[in-house]
């Protein structure tokens, strides 16, 4: 049940991202923000699976070399899962926002360095230096933080509901 809800939410965030990106270009990455929340609150196995699913769909729909989103999502969300589970038992909103901030910086640097590498291999016509700017990073951080604040409340409810559901199954 948890995985089903997770996959459904991941696909929904990908569709939401593709719809909203038309009006707010390059401002946020909703699937990534959602996966950060999932990694903080849920177990690593489901985190890896959802990171893979979200990354795979984004890779298919995006123009950057295939695999870029999957690798970025899998590595970053796994690290968030390991770190947050060993440091915080019940993370508060400000902790999640700090994690989102750091994760966005890592995501930005990691995504574009990896893209540079893969583009040399596959898509020589894309010059990524045009996209690497401080303004873009700042915009992305701000966008992701806003998205996280909005998503957090929704995710908190979903997460509580999922935990309750799992407990009920365990009892029965």
């Amino acid at each position: 049940m948890k995985l089903f809800v997770g996959i459904l939410l991941t696909i929904s965030t990908v569709i939401l991202q593709i719809t909203l990106v038309k009006y707010f270009p390059s401002l946020f990455n909703i699937p990534f923000v959602f996966l950060i929340s999932w990694a903080i609150f849920q177990d690593y196995k489901s985190t890896l699976l959802l990171a893979f699913t979200g990354g795979f769909i984004l890779d298919i729909l995006s123009m950057t070399p295939f695999g870029l989103f999957i690798i970025t999502f899998v590595i970053i969300t796994f690290l968030i899962n390991v770190i947050s589970h060993s440091l915080f038992s019940e993370p508060k909103l400000y902790v999640i926002l700090i994690i989102t901030f750091i994760a966005t910086v890592i995501y930005f640097s990691f995504y574009w360095s990896l893209a540079e590498l893969l583009i040399i291999w596959e898509y020589s016509f894309i010059d990524l230096s045009n996209f690497l700017s401080f303004q873009l990073l700042a915009g992305k951080i701000l966008g992701n933080l806003i998205a996280q604040i909005i998503l957090f409340k929704v995710f908190w409810k979903v997460s509580t509901w999922l935990k309750l559901y799992e407990r009920q199954i365990e009892i029965s």
Binding site: K22, P25, S62, T64
Partner: peptide, 13 residues
């Protein structure tokens, strides 16, 4: 039927 999720002004599907 699609836009690039990261660079919407650059590519379409």
């Amino acid at each position: 039927s699609g836009l690039d999720p990261e660079n919407p002004g650059d590519f379409v599907i």
